[in-house]
């Protein structure tokens, strides 16, 4: 066999290996979603979404769980997004490229890899005890904010890095100040990438349970929170509680709640994809 032939063979072999790997991932996801849909889809109705938890599986609902998740997501976005984007802008546009800067850079990357339960312990000590927020929504949101800040910062920095220098230079050339350049040119151009980072971060936050258990998220909450200082539960807590119960009807409830959680994640990702495409099209240099 000639060398050329061997290379061509390797080339096409790699293609099929790649396809196989992709299909494997997709098949696993498909099996999982299919299994959950078969088990839980019939259980979802309006009552399920608007009922309080109950000892009778057929009467139990996820009202407090999904509203808790919505509260946590909202508060976490409010806290983490401005902080994360601002920190990203500073590090990329203003920060001097010194040893300190590279130290900070390495440590932000490290922070993104710390197990979430460690953030939970930090949150318990600082937000729950020292700041005396108790096991409230705000304590949970602050803890999750810490958890996802590194992801947002890294995402913002990468997005800003990808903006061509020529754009900045043109802006300076027209007499714009640094801030004007960032606000009117760099940020809009980087918005797609920044948004991707935010959505990845929030999607992580939505599924986190461990840090919330540590700071004191509850299993049974019979009322919808009215303020950030109320106690709360979240969907993953409710799911875990149900799947570890002996009665099979609760397992079905768990599957149904998983579908709702997946739906929230898919909708969030969908919105992000839509916005990114929409904004990307508007940018013309």
């Amino acid at each position: 066999m000639s060398k050329l032939k061997t290379n061509r063979l390797i080339d096409s072999a790699f293609k099929y290996v790649g396809i196989a790997c992709t299909l494997f991932g997709l098949a696993m996801l498909g099996i999982f979603i299919g299994d959950i849909l078969i088990k839980g889809l019939m259980r979802i109705d309006w009552d399920f979404i608007t009922s309080l938890p109950s000892r009778k599986a057929s009467k139990a609902g996820i009202l407090t769980a999904w509203t808790g998740t919505a509260w946590i997501l909202g508060l976490t976005s409010i806290i983490a997004i401005p902080l994360g984007i601002s920190a990203g802008i500073y590090l990329e546009e203003y920060g001097k490229k010194s040893r300190l800067a590279s130290l900070i850079e390495v440590n932000i990357a490290n922070l993104a890899g710390i197990p979430s339960i460690i953030y939970g312990l930090l949150g318990l000590e600082i937000f729950v005890r020292v700041l005396n927020f108790g096991g409230s929504l705000i304590a949970g949101a602050l803890t999750l904010s810490l958890l996802i800040l590194p992801i947002i910062i890294v995402g913002t920095r990468e997005a800003i890095k990808a903006v061509p220098t020529s754009l900045r230079e043109a802006s300076y050339g027209l007499g714009a100040t640094k801030w004007q350049t960032i606000w009117h040119q760099v940020l809009p151009a980087a918005s797609g990438g920044i948004l991707t980072g935010i959505i990845l971060a929030l999607s992580r936050a939505i599924g986190e349970t461990a840090p919330l258990i540590v700071i004191g998220a509850l299993a049974y909450v019979p009322f919808v929170a009215h303020s950030p200082f109320d106690e709360f539960t979240v969907l993953p807590m409710q799911i875990f509680n149900w799947v570890s119960r002996p009665q099979h009807e609760f397992l079905v409830n768990g599957a149904a709640a998983i579908i709702i959680l997946l739906l929230i994640t898919f909708v969030m990702n969908g919105i992000a994809l839509y916005l990114r495409n929409k904004w990307q099209k508007k940018i013309k240099w």
Binding site: I78, I81, P82, S86, W183, P188, S191, L275, W279
Partner: peptide, 19 residues
């Protein structure tokens, strides 16, 4: 094109409100 900036402003405002 203003969206990221808008997002930033809104979230800062909401944050001060919730505090």
């Amino acid at each position: 094109m203003n969206s990221v900036r808008g997002l930033l402003l809104i979230t800062v405002l909401l944050f001060s409100f919730s505090c």
